[in-house]
Design a protein around this nucleic acid. Structure first.
Lengths: 146, 146
DNA sequence: ATACAAGTTCAAGTCGACTTGAAGTCAAGC
DNA sequence: GCTTGACTTCAAGTCGACTTGAACTTGTAT
């Protein structure tokens, strides 16, 4: 298949496919002149990648999942991610309930409402993006598995 | 309080506090020379912001929530976000089950396993980041409320 | 009075996942 | 034989949420 066919079949723009190839997530089976040729199984691979993305994996993590030979899967990583999802689900559930409560509650100040305060405690655990400084720090990916 | 106290109390770096002020999310109550002075209620405000972030709001959305006068809350937006969380929770749950299954299942190829295929369908709905092109498009924020 | 730690501003950098643009290559149809 | 349109490469741009750096000012302790 040429890149346009893959694009159509996968729903991804050609630019993304080139980008994924460059990152080593997929590979083209050859060239016809300059043009990439893909074998049909790249579609499966892309589906797996989409799955990974929507489960919250980064492209690098997904890259690590495909074992050196063949598109197999790192079970440990999978289970770790499942546990992570479990935690996130719990948090989001509390968050959702909290939001609904906040919308309904008419305490003059939400900080006086015990339900709201409980919500804040949950929210606190769920911090988003800040560790920018540990860069060449090495443990980054290892740390969460301890 | 000066910025260092707020930083310590909130757990946020001073740079973030300045950034939030510039974005209009918090305000300093005055200056002592050059230095910002904050009143204690900025902590509540920051807590609310943290809450919003961890519920998945962008800083701009959070900005919209604080009604012009006083740190009150836009209930419609809150409920809409709660519904959104509901959807995400369902997806993540399916995803988590799917991951656990994928780790356990030893079909030679996951694409032959009906459970896995069902998972893929769910994953498909949960697309991450691509609409970069609708920029001056106007409806962006309005669209999700229709 | 002077040092200096801690504040300030403003511009630029970072991170991940792509997208966009410019400039070039090439197979196929007229 | 020449245009055309789909492909190619490579560099640079984008988006959100901050962080970092350089150059500067100031309150406080000595």
């Amino acid at each position: 298949m040429d890149i346009a066919e893959v694009a159509k079949a996968s729903g991804l723009p050609a630019s993304t496919l080139r980008f994924y190839e460059e990152k080593g997530l997929i590979q083209s089976s050859g060239r016809s002149g300059l043009r990439r040729l893909f074998s049909a199984n790249v579609i499966e691979r892309l589906t797996l990648i989409a799955l990974g993305r929507s489960a919250g994996f980064s492209l690098d993590e997904i890259g690590e999942m495909f074992t050196p030979e063949g598109p197999d899967i790192n079970r440990t990583l999978l289970l770790a991610k499942a546990d992570e999802l479990d935690r996130k689900i719990k948090e989001l559930t509390a968050m959702r309930d909290g939001l609904r409560h906040a919308a309904a509650c008419n305490a003059p100040n939400h900080f006086e409402c015990p339900k709201f305060l409980r919500l804040l405690r949950v929210a606190g655990k769920n911090r988003v993006r800040q560790p920018n400084k540990l860069k060449d720090n090495k443990l980054k990916r290892g740390a969460q598995l301890t």
